[in-house]
Design a protein around this nucleic acid. Structure first.
Lengths: 191, 191
DNA sequence: ATTGATAAACTAATATTATTAGTTTATACT
DNA sequence: AGTATAAACTAATAATATTAGTTTATCAAT
């Protein structure tokens, strides 16, 4: 008891994520979800309380995935190298899971436990920024700028606003470069 | 003939925009829209071809509003002053019309005429950037960075990711400042 | 003014969806 | 083996988008 339920929940969320990417969040329907799981729609209500709760859990699922991706990208790197790597991983996640990524924006609407998880992703960032010894204000400013740059570019790109294909990655890297320029020299860096 | 129809369309779009802000795009319903217009739902089909087309027209409506706001902000200013002013106006529009703003992201999915209008907004920006004599590549890079910064910040802020209230405007201005730093000195500027 | 065309409203009907209630079935523990 | 429980099912309801077909109001031309 409990463990098996966990698995069911996982299965439902995975199927939901998959369905969301296939059909788009707009046309996401419980009927299709049930069908994908080989079950009739009402059966879903044994595992969740309806569409609204599912959306919330999906947002939770999404932020966790992104957090894992970001964390992984930062392993074994530090300073600007880490920040470039994170930015790259962040972009790839959004491009490969556009629907899931877009769901993350709804996060702050939900209840505390879900919101906390959203905060966790930023913890990775703060850890990377530690060596720069920024004060509270500088830290906030920088973190917001960095995240805004990533989110803004990636979200416009994925929506289809940036047409010329080959230069997209370059544009992104330059944008991130612009932001990183405002970090002080790394401690113990050789130049 | 024709002019009166135009008016009807305007009325429908205004009511739609209003309803979207009231209920949120998620819970936007043709029944409520009809009710707001003092009419039964099927009557709407005399003026539009259904939900999908309405979404498209709403996106068109939204980008036009934003374009107007941006254009107005740029009047009588040039260079970085204009770019700060535009950024400020852009942010205010998004904060005051969050649902309408979010609809703009769907723009590239639609047909050419709608997409063209999306491009028009950027024309204003290119005009402002003319005096800097950037080459094609620099221009694209900068425009993307600037727009990404605006969109990213504003969209995260409006979603509720940035908690500490008093510093939000400051954070935004600093972000824009970071981007503008990468413009060359204005022609004929006095330092 | 009367009429006749046109457009826009209406009512009625259908299909799809989310959701609830109530029933059956399978599973797991004693 | 027998029962408690959870998860599936069927049936039913309310809301929605949409279509078809009918009525009504408007407006131009006689």
């Amino acid at each position: 008891m409990g463990r098996r339920k966990r698995l069911e929940k996982e299965m439902i969320l995975e199927a939901s994520a998959q369905l969301a990417e296939e059909r788009g969040m707009e046309h996401f329907t419980l009927s299709e979800l049930a069908q994908k799981l080989g079950v009739k729609p009402p059966s879903l209500y044994n595992h969740l309380n309806g569409m609204d709760q599912l959306s919330e859990e999906l947002a939770y699922y999404a932020i966790n995935q992104l957090e894992a991706v970001v964390q992984k990208a930062a392993v074994g790197r530090s300073g600007k190298a880490a920040l470039y790597e994170i930015a790259d991983a962040y972009r790839l996640f959004a491009l490969q899971n556009p629907q899931l990524y877009s769901v993350i924006l709804k996060l702050p609407q939900y209840e505390p436990p879900v919101i906390e998880e959203g905060r966790n992703m930023m913890q990775v960032l703060y850890r990377v920024l530690e060596p720069y010894h920024l004060n509270q204000d500088e830290l906030r400013t920088f973190a917001r700028a960095y995240r805004s740059a990533m989110h803004g570019f990636v979200s416009l790109e994925q929506a289809g606003f940036f047409l010329s294909e080959p230069e997209r990655k370059t544009s992104y890297e330059r944008l991130i470069g612009m932001i990183l320029q405002f970090l002080p020299q790394e401690e113990g860096a050789e130049k």
